[in-house]
Computed example of a mutant assay.
Amino acid sequence: MTVGDLIDLLSVCDRSAPVRLAMSPFFPMAHRLTEVVQAEAKGRLVVYLAEGPDPSSQLGPLPPEVAVALTWQGPVQAPPRRARRTARRTDGQ
């Protein structure tokens, strides 16, 4: 993805919405974006989006609906309910 691609994707978003990073598909967490840095890496210019050093930058688990939208998790549904079994008396009554 290029900066132009990112701008195109962001151009349809609400400009007042906070920005979050979704990290780690196997342990999905949300992080606050605090820095944008442009630097040369391996001979080419790269833009990095980063969380800050503040411990409050990690906001906690990613909402399940976001993980599903990212296809990091499948939609989870409660298992079907089964009739409860009753204990049988073994004393003949």
Rank of each mutant, 00 (worst) to 15 (best):
Q73H: 11
L9P: 01
G74E: 11
E35G: 07
R82Y: 10
R32A: 11
A30V: 06
L45V: 13
P64W: 02
A50W: 07
P75E: 14
P25V: 02
Q73W: 04
L62I: 02
Q58V: 01
G60M: 00
L10Y: 14
P61Q: 08
I7K: 12
V37H: 05
P63K: 03
G4Y: 06
L49C: 05
L45C: 08
A69E: 06
W72V: 00
L33Y: 01
C13E: 15
K42V: 02
D5Q: 11
V12D: 11
V68G: 04
S56F: 05
H31F: 02
P79E: 06
R20A: 09
L21G: 05
V46L: 10
E35T: 13
V37N: 11
V76Y: 10
R44Y: 07
T71I: 07
G74Y: 07
S24Q: 12
A39W: 06
L33I: 08
L21K: 01
A41R: 14
A22D: 01
F27V: 10
L33N: 07
V47L: 14
L62W: 03
P64L: 06
A67D: 00
L59G: 02
P55V: 06
P55C: 05
A67F: 05
L33S: 04
A67S: 15
G4T: 10
Q77A: 14
L45H: 05
G60V: 04
Q58N: 10
T34G: 13
H31C: 07
P80D: 13
R81C: 10
V66N: 01
V36I: 15
Q38S: 12
G52I: 06
P64K: 03
L21E: 03
L6H: 06
R81A: 15
P28W: 02
P28G: 05
D8M: 11
P53A: 08
Q73Y: 06
Q73S: 07
A69K: 09
V68A: 04
L21H: 03
S16N: 15
S16P: 06
P53D: 14
L62K: 01
V68Q: 07
R32M: 00
R20Q: 12
A30E: 01
M29L: 13
R44L: 08
Q38D: 08
V66F: 01
G4I: 08
P28I: 02
V66K: 00
E40Y: 05
E40I: 10
P55M: 02
T71Q: 09
Q73P: 00
G74R: 15
R15C: 08
L45F: 04
L21T: 03
S56N: 13
R82D: 09
A83W: 11
H31D: 01
F26Y: 12
R44Q: 09
R81Y: 10
E35H: 13
V47T: 15
A39Q: 12
Q77R: 14
S57W: 04
V47G: 02
M23D: 11
G74W: 03
E65Q: 14
V46N: 00
Q58S: 09
T34V: 01
V12M: 06
V47W: 03
P63R: 04
L49T: 00
P53Q: 09
L10G: 08
Q58I: 03
V37K: 10
R15M: 11
C13V: 13
A30M: 04
Y48E: 12
R44S: 12
P28V: 03
A78V: 08
P53I: 07
W72Q: 04
S56M: 07
P80W: 08
A39C: 04
D14Q: 03
E51D: 05
M23T: 11
A30Q: 00
L45Q: 14
L45R: 11
L70K: 05
